[in-house]
């Protein structure tokens, strides 16, 4: 895979001295969907703003399609479509005019057929001549997407695309993203809905306090999430594992009152039946069973906590 966006040692400090990005390194691969997860104020929007040209980097470089975003900004920005987090639209303009305007800003000749198609894909076509102020919040958000797509970008940044959007619309939005990916568009989205990242991303990046903590394939993360922990409460505490249970991968809990067994829910055999049988054979009396699944949320929370 070749990277289409390359961020090196990117730092961004604001006038007040606040460092929003402290040395970000990130390679975004062509054609992927990358979800950037992070708590509020982690630097997600600043990172996107700096890649897209809204903020000037304090130091470090950002290359988009091989073009530096500062020195060769025209070539870099030509490739990018940006959907901002806030609903920023001219209220008195019609949908069609405002989307046309966006296309023009990117130096592309007028192409109403293309814009009509984009509006159809976003279920906005019947509103093409409506004024923005007449639209619902969800529709306005889709107008922002239409504007970003109007110049046929090869990279699309979606900053919190489904914040404050109802469940149904969120699913529609995911379908739109999937279609775009199928057409070859690279998509970077920020979110703090973990299920959103799980549902659509190829890779997940976790950002906190201006640093990227990890960027990993979603499957690898899911692998970690697939781990489940079985806790077996015992009626009498033990200090040592019985012989027949030695190779079962069991751990004795700190107080000796329970046994802990980690297993993978995705494998064909979890070995739980055999384990319970062995426990019975070893003469151990169980009072309770409890299972816990580690989620992306746990991984996320652990990581964020570790760094703070």
């Amino acid at each position: 895979m070749t990277s289409i966006v390359s961020v090196r040692d990117l730092k961004k400090s604001y006038a007040g001295g606040f460092e929003a990005l402290s040395g970000v390194n990130l390679e975004i691969e062509k054609g992927e969907i990358l979800a950037l997860l992070g708590p509020n104020g982690a630097g997600k929007t600043t990172l996107i703003s700096t890649i897209c040209g809204i903020s000037i980097p304090t130091s470090g470089t950002v290359r988009v399609g091989g073009h530096d975003v500062v020195t060769d900004f025209r070539a870099a920005r030509n490739l990018i479509g940006l959907v901002p987090q806030e609903i920023n639209l001219e209220p008195f303009e019609t949908v069609m005019n405002t989307v046309r305007f966006s296309r023009g800003l990117f130096g592309k000749p007028r192409n109403d057929a293309l814009i009509d198609q984009i509006l159809k894909d976003l279920s906005l076509h019947d509103k093409r001549d409506s004024k923005i102020m007449m639209l619902s919040g969800g529709m306005k958000r889709r107008v922002l997407i239409a504007k970003a797509l109007s110049h046929e970008p090869s990279i699309l940044f979606l900053d919190e695309p489904t914040a404050g959007v109802d469940v149904e619309l969120r699913k529609d939005m995911w379908d739109v993203v999937a279609k775009l990916k199928a057409s070859g568009v690279t998509i970077i989205l920020t979110t703090h809905y973990i299920e959103e990242a799980e549902a659509i991303a190829d890779r997940v990046g976790i950002i906190s306090k201006g640093s990227i903590l990890l960027v990993e394939k979603k499957e690898d993360l899911m692998q970690r999430m697939g781990k489940k922990r079985l806790r077996i409460e015992l009626s009498t505490p033990i200090s040592e594992l019985p012989q027949e249970l030695a190779d079962r991968g069991l751990e004795i809990a700190a107080d000796g009152n329970a046994l802990i067994h980690d297993y993978d829910t995705r494998s064909d055999r979890t070995g739980i039946t055999a384990l319970l049988k062995d426990l019975q054979n070893a003469g151990l009396k169980m009072t309770d069973l409890e299972t816990q699944q580690s989620s992306l949320e746990d991984i996320f929370v652990d990581l964020v906590r570790e760094t703070s």
């Binding site: 025209r74 070539a75 920005r77 806030e86 920023n88 966006s102 800003l105």
Partner: peptide, 18 residues
């Protein structure tokens, strides 16, 4: 001023225009 006020200035800043 109006694009600054309503936030649509983002578009001018992220477009390939000087």
């Amino acid at each position: 001023y109006f694009p600054k006020f309503i936030g649509t200035i983002y578009e001018l800043l992220s477009a390939p225009i000087s």
